[in-house]
Design a protein around this nucleic acid. Structure first.
Lengths: 341, 341
DNA sequence: TTGAAAGCGATACCAA
DNA sequence: TTGGTATCGCTTTCAA
């Protein structure tokens, strides 16, 4: 059933039916009711394509997720971000167009989306310290919100980020308060903005206590279980092994735990672990006693906020660039205890 | 730059330019070259909406992921399926429309997609034993492929599935060959098709050796880390504890490992674990020595195959329902050893 | 081999 | 308060 059929069925013009359904004020209330009822009983829904062509909008938001061909894995955190964003689009009558592309195809993808008008705006995922996508999107005049930040850029742009710096500053401070002095940092790739901000938070906390950071107990890599395991094993075997580990991902933290136990140490006793974690409930204990001590931030909420910001920008493209900084929460779990020696 | 502008720039009609770019044979080769070059230099891309309106297609495939509000978590495996599917769409010039909806909104979502013509077809995720979506989609006449199966239905429909039954039959047989007689099964929800097929494979392997399955060492639940931990702890504390665990998810297997170690047992010695795993590299060891013994299946490949099947169906809607059954691979890792008792 | 014009299904402007 | 009609940017049929 399309508009033409519905309106001829009602004995009205397409104009009136369209106006009635889109809430225009100049329609007689009785007419509007009749139209609404007929639309409901016939299950009429306006064609997305036709509506889009007429209005010049697509009612679709693009999410472009970089998939590195080198490492062949998708960070499961993306699913949570998408779930949050999807919620926002659902409420606003928008759709979510997902593109998972290798880094070298990314520019072409953005240009394509812009030129074909496939999307009304995009969310930028996984920003690097100095991310070329931001300038590209500004040049393309395609509305966007960065989920994260790109700290080395001077441009003003829309972003939603969790306060990684403060989160890691507080987590490090927490471990220092417990008496730990050798705190290892297992972090994501150095090119990633979030990783550098976490490292800054870690370093600043040490500095505040007059301690300097030791590069031999800092590692940057892809945050797999085996990275956690290998790095921990290596550091624990060295002279002056760390008594605590600050880990950028729950998956790596599983490897850290394995290595700690394999070397005969006890988690939360001889060696402590604090992890940066999403609110994923996968790794929580029953009865809500958390296994890991974690700096928690709901990535799903972050995704929803970024999406809502983008919709607002699309609605009124004249508004000034907006930024939202979310704070993470520290939850103390069994994986952390005071430094022993 | 749109078709009108490009064609007037070239001094040709829109018809000819359209034909040249879409590979119609009746175009002079010299003309075609001229058109292609001009299109490239001006970065011309046909508007998706206009093309869709003219052809009656959307060049978009929908993926509807059920998000249960009760459990509030998104299975990370979905990200891998989407990555595989995305690859197929990329090559075919299609887009991927993602909808994450709570189970109760699912029917409305499907009806909406069909009525508005937002998508040309959908992939059904996470099928239940008897899944209502299949009949709904048949009624809506919307092309679809199920990623998995719905075994209690008699209808004929398109699906791509991994052979869960054979995978768990072989895994159980492998443990039996090692001498294990008390093998626990930690599985997904009983309503899920994959979970019941895995259970059947497990039971049939026991039966083949004249053994019967013991319900006290079979658990069905959401496959979190804590489920793995709690169930394992409980079973190991009981009389006649299992000497091996067959686990439906790597995440739960992390909890299984934790419980095994906490009770003073050694993984791969006193107690063995075999896990059903995607080809996710998160949990592999460096040097490719696998930590877990796993029945591996590449979910990414499964997603790609399902997507390719759907595109083929859309291209030729008259073809008979198709089915593809993928076999999983057994990889022996450190988590498994002979039964000691 | 090329072009004119109709049509896809909505919205929105201008009249009545 | 309602309707006629142009328009969005393509594809496709029919004619030349």
């Amino acid at each position: 059933m399309n508009l033409k059929e519905l309106s001829s069925h009602l004995g009205l013009s397409q104009t009136t039916v369209s106006r009635a359904l889109n809430g225009y004020p100049e329609v007689n209330e009785a007419t509007r009711r009749r139209v609404r009822e007929a639309a409901a009983t016939h299950g009429y829904r306006p064609s997305t394509r036709a509506k889009g062509l007429a209005t010049g909008r697509s009612f679709t938001i693009g999410h472009i997720i970089p998939v590195s061909t080198k490492h062949e894995l998708v960070n499961p955190i993306f699913a949570e971000i998408l779930a949050g964003a999807s919620e926002a689009y659902e409420n606003a009558g928008y759709g979510l167009m997902l593109s998972m592309v290798s880094d070298q195809d990314e520019e072409r993808t953005y240009r394509d989306l812009a030129a074909r008008g496939t999307v009304d705006g995009v969310i930028v995922h996984g920003p690097k310290l100095s991310d070329a996508r931001i300038k590209l999107l500004q040049d393309l005049n395609l509305p966007f919100v960065v989920h994260g930040r790109s700290s080395r850029l001077v441009q003003d742009y829309n972003w939603v980020d969790v306060n990684n710096r403060s989160a890691f500053n507080r987590a490090t401070g927490f471990l220092l308060d417990l008496g730990h002095r050798r705190i290892a940092l297992l972090n994501g790739f150095e090119t990633m903005d979030f990783a550098m901000r976490r490292r800054e938070g870690y370093s600043s906390a040490l500095k505040e206590r007059g301690l300097s950071s030791d590069p031999t107990i800092i590692a940057h890599d892809e945050m797999t279980e085996s990275f956690g395991y290998d790095a921990t094993k290596y550091m624990l075997d060295a002279d002056q092994p760390p008594t605590a580990f600050l880990v950028s991902s729950i998956i790596s933290a599983m490897g850290v735990r394995r290595a700690i136990e394999e070397t005969g140490r006890q988690l939360g006793k001889e060696t402590s672990v604090v992890v940066f974690d999403d609110d994923l409930s996968y790794f929580r204990n029953a009865g809500d006693i958390p296994l890991f001590t974690a700096v928690r931030s709901s990535v799903r909420t972050g995704g929803r906020i970024a999406a809502e910001m983008l919709l607002e920008i699309i609605r009124d493209r004249s508004i000034e660039p907006k930024q939202t900084l979310l704070e993470a929460q520290l939850t103390v779990g069994m994986s952390t205890g005071p430094a022993l020696n």
